[in-house]
């Protein structure tokens, strides 16, 4: 019986799907600087295995579509305030270099609001969630952070749950 090729979609096909500018645009409310947006988008779409790049593009694009359909338009620049706690995403550096200086973090913060709601006031649970979402390769940690930020916005726009 002839063997079926294990991968019917080439890496080149995945590469041709990726459109950086729309993802850079999606990042605008959380990353005001254009060079920083290019950096984040490069990490999301130009690093790691091809299927991760493609998955990031698809999921973030769909979330961007949801944002577009919200009743209230997304403000172009969203600045974190004390009532909107955030955490920075560390660069993936060897442990001995992972100093806690501002330069050792990606120029993107992840909103803690949805995680705090999910954890129901359990700060330890929030810390665990943050660890799970921000650990790992840059393309995962950054995609997680952007998704949480977008979900925060969607949750804000939805009617509060009855529970």
């Amino acid at each position: 019986m002839p063997q079926r090729p294990p991968f019917s979609v080439s890496a080149l096909s995945i590469e041709s799907l990726l459109e950086t500018s729309s993802i850079e645009s999606l990042l605008t409310p959380w990353v005001s600087n254009v060079e920083d947006r290019q950096f984040i988008a490069r990490c999301l779409l130009r690093s790691g295995p091809a299927h991760h790049r493609g998955a990031n593009f698809v999921l973030l694009s769909l979330l961007g579509e949801v944002l577009q359909r919200l009743p209230e338009p997304m403000p172009q620049v969203r600045v974190a305030t004390p009532i909107e706690p955030c955490v920075p995403i560390p660069l993936r550096l060897p442990p001995h270099l992972a100093e806690h200086t501002s330069d050792r973090y990606f120029p993107l913060q992840m909103s803690l609001g949805p995680l705090q709601k999910l954890a129901g006031g359990d700060e330890h649970a929030v810390a665990v969630m943050v660890d799970c979402l921000t650990d790992g390769p840059a393309q995962h940690a950054l995609a997680n952070a952007v998704m949480v930020n977008v979900l925060a916005r969607i949750l804000d726009a939805l009617t509060p749950s009855r529970s």
């Binding site: 950096f39 490069r42 990490c43 130009r46 690093s47 660069l91 993936r92 550096l93 120029p107 390769p137």
Partner: peptide
């Protein structure tokens, strides 16, 4: 390398 690429902005 892949690690270095995500550690520098430009």
């Amino acid at each position: 390398g892949d690690d270095i690429r995500t550690q520098f902005r430009s």
